[in-house]
Design a protein around this nucleic acid. Sequence first.
DNA 1: GATGAATGAGTATTCATTCAT
DNA 2: AATGAATGAATACTCATTCAT
Lengths: 188, 188, 188, 188
Amino acid sequence: MARPLSDDRRNTIIIAATELISERGLGTSTADIAKHAGISNGSVFTYFETKTDLFNAIYSELKEELIATVLAAIPSDQEEKSQLRYFWSARTQWGVTNPQKRKALAQLHVSDKITIVSRQAATVSAAPILNLIAQVAMRGTLRAAPPSYVVELVEGMAGTTMDFMIANPAMAEEASQAGFDALWRMLA
Amino acid sequence: MARPLSDDRRNTIIIAATELISERGLGTSTADIAKHAGISNGSVFTYFETKTDLFNAIYSELKEELIATVLAAIPSDQEEKSQLRYFWSARTQWGVTNPQKRKALAQLHVSDKITIVSRQAATVSAAPILNLIAQVAMRGTLRAAPPSYVVELVEGMAGTTMDFMIANPAMAEEASQAGFDALWRMLA
Amino acid sequence: MARPLSDDRRNTIIIAATELISERGLGTSTADIAKHAGISNGSVFTYFETKTDLFNAIYSELKEELIATVLAAIPSDQEEKSQLRYFWSARTQWGVTNPQKRKALAQLHVSDKITIVSRQAATVSAAPILNLIAQVAMRGTLRAAPPSYVVELVEGMAGTTMDFMIANPAMAEEASQAGFDALWRMLA
Amino acid sequence: MARPLSDDRRNTIIIAATELISERGLGTSTADIAKHAGISNGSVFTYFETKTDLFNAIYSELKEELIATVLAAIPSDQEEKSQLRYFWSARTQWGVTNPQKRKALAQLHVSDKITIVSRQAATVSAAPILNLIAQVAMRGTLRAAPPSYVVELVEGMAGTTMDFMIANPAMAEEASQAGFDALWRMLA
DNA sequence: GATGAATGAGTATTCATTCAT
DNA sequence: AATGAATGAATACTCATTCAT
């Protein structure tokens, strides 16, 4: 049945692209991605029809990984504040542990190459998290604000916090803690 | 004495570039910028040595304009909360009034073409604002957090809020208000 | 003993390629030909060493088919004018009945990928036809002209006539008739 | 007013492209054309927006040149047969004198990249010739056939004749003469 | 200084052919 | 023999920058 498409190769491409995007931005050429992945120019296109497809795949994979990580970290048997704290901790920790993924994801997030479909798929997976945030906000300062706005506010704070943590590793733990306090004050 | 560089032309280029960047992103070609500005191709390079220089100039101009607008809106004879409210109002209002500038600035902000020098220059001009924020934060939840982190948090919230206001004009006023309430809860 | 090459598959490839060439020209990719033939990519190359080889094979097959059809249509027991008329009728009819083959053959005919060998082989098979034409021309206007020139003149007229017949099906019969009259006038 | 577009350069490109097309076909790359013209890769595109535009320009130029040459050779004060003879002589002579142009034109003629607009423009310029042919045919064998068919028949014969003349220079004159006799027999 | 043609490195994608399965 | 993934050279076109006018 001929050589099958290799998940390994697919992953290699995604990883190589993620690294280069984090270092050089979305302008990274497919040829550089191929070289960095140690494969031929053309092979990129046997795994992804277009550069845009590749970018959407990376976006989806990173989002799913992030969401899965965060979801796994939230215990279901705790009160909301505790759950939110676990969310926040996992969220910021992921970014610090995976700075390249974090940076690439941030760039992809604002790119107009990422389709609504990709974005919505991520939203679906993240539903429990979004619900948790909405739940917490429901009785606080932002109770009247649209949930999508609240969620973006939280995402923005997480992004700022991660950037700071990455730039100041020594203060990472404190920053995450301070971030959570600010978040809780803001939401609750 | 040869013809001197014309401030008018320089401005025309910056305005044209801002518009195109907001519509098409940083990939906009210098040729398109020239055409949009109604000048020749080559003239872009008599006013800005490189495309990167042009982008840095735009970043600086937009930042300075924003800062000046906000500064002008903050009365010096009021208590901190009131000052902060004026700041917030002017900040978000500017973005809604100048959506193209807002969008271009957002893109430039995350670009790796913008130098630290450009970024720091803006920080200097914004000192009074940064001080105000730091002052407010000094006795609140984030009292122990580094001021630069707090400021970025505020900037992030403003960005999120403006995006939402621009996307939902009908709810713009409420969103700005809700944003301020959240900000105050978070900081104070 | 390994599996032998299948004539069926070979034919399938040639048919598929003929169709695609007639629709999309000689630029058709081997991958598309394989897909259209319902076989794999690589199989094309187990039946034909190169794309050029495939094209030469198609040229030869189409030529042979055309020649065989025309030869079968010429009765041996008639006078020359009648034979020539049968030839002409079969020749133009074939083109109208097989427009894809006609179109593909026309493209291959002018391609520089078709070798002299392929071209000469066709000439050999067509000998009886060429002789008939030469015979007819021998006593006419073109009696002093080289036979190869005369034959090409006839071929050209047939091509033009077929193109016209295919483009104007309603006038096909008349055109074929008019073409023969012109041919006879020219030759005899 | 900056360096103006140079007609010389434009011509150089057209000539270079014509030569390469005649040798290597329409697949000739724009890079090779540029190199052969002694200019940079990109300059091809400052003179012709696309490769297709370049090909249409070549087609038009060659057709116009051919038509002008032929028209200039037809005396207006002679009877039809004589005019047709002058036409035929000029037509075949042009092809023999300019074998590369002849070959390139033949390839472009059958290419689907050449627009109807380009083709029609040529038809308009060639009107006197087309009329002459139609006039001659009006009382002959092909009197009932559509003029467009008759014209294509003539073009085909001219093409065949030129090919033969080019391939057999020693017999060129005779072939042209024989071609005319055949043409006249066929038409009149 | 202004203009816009000239340059040539760079881009995503295609495709004939090879080769591991 | 059949499959289809792997390869890498090739392609049309773009664009920041330079430079002749």
